[in-house]
Amino acid sequence: MEKTLVVKNLALAFHQERRPVTILAGVEFEISSGETLALVGESGSGKTLTALSIVKLLPPQARLETGEVRLNGQSLTSLSEREMENIRGRQVGLVFQEPSAYLNPVFTIGNQIEEAIKSSLSRKEKKERVAQMLAEVGLDEKHYWHYPHQLSGGMQQRALIAMALINHPSLLIADEPTTSLDVTTAVQIISLIKTLIKKHHLALLFISHDIALAHYFADRMAVMYAGRLVEIGPTRTVFNSPRHPYTESLIACLPEKYKPGEKIRAIPGTVPDFANLPSGCPFHPRCHRRMERCFREEPEMFPVASALVRCFLYGNSVATEPGN
């Protein structure tokens, strides 16, 4: 099947005062149309920057070092800013974390959705299109005239979804779309997104720090740590038999994995600072299965079953394993 999104060997660095700081390295994944890929990791692991580098909406100090992004067969890497404006909104829609901040407070919902329409339609046609979209995301036609502050958080997120999908893009990027919402609203938004991607046959990149939510949601799952993908594969494989020690600990920390009376677990240590990453495998200081080699070398992705895992436990480890 034709891949909607192909990301190859993406590397991103921040160029600040002195030396450049590498944020993303060797990020690779694909999403077919109709498929949902969940990108999971702790906050500060580079998930949002991965999403933003796909559409090239990076902060000024960030620069793409290597890598290619192909959307529907077209390479985005060499496109100019003008050409990217045509891609954004038309082929990729984005939904963000905190709907109240991501909507402009001084314009009506209708105005903000309508201006996103890329095809040249008459004013009346545009209005109809917006009304149709509002209905699709579960908003009322009267909300066209409302300002963001008059809507609840859930309704604001619906408006943002409408805005992202108004041009029927082939890819939707949802960056923690439910994090700032309360649980019942979050469930509604999740099921809305599920309905919409099924209906429009959308490819979805779903970014979340919540591996359980991703499990419920996604066809495939990618786990990110310190700007690197550490494990990627079908959701069931990754979730039920995690291979990478990091994925393992993430899943072990989930509340539903506890027996009554058991102590709360957490991964020891903290997320490393990008400016001084540990040598070798960036996860080794927090890893309970580290080997001597992990201090020196950074592992590649090794195929394990139907997944790819970035850990020496699963590839050409025999030669250097201590004691052998």
Binding site: L57, R88, E115, A116
Partner: peptide, 26 residues
Amino acid sequence: GSPYILTARAKGLPPVLVLYKHALRN
């Protein structure tokens, strides 16, 4: 620097609209 500017750019709006509609009014 506000998030809604990112939204406006993510919609693919041209810089003129991003600057003089969304940023200016606020």
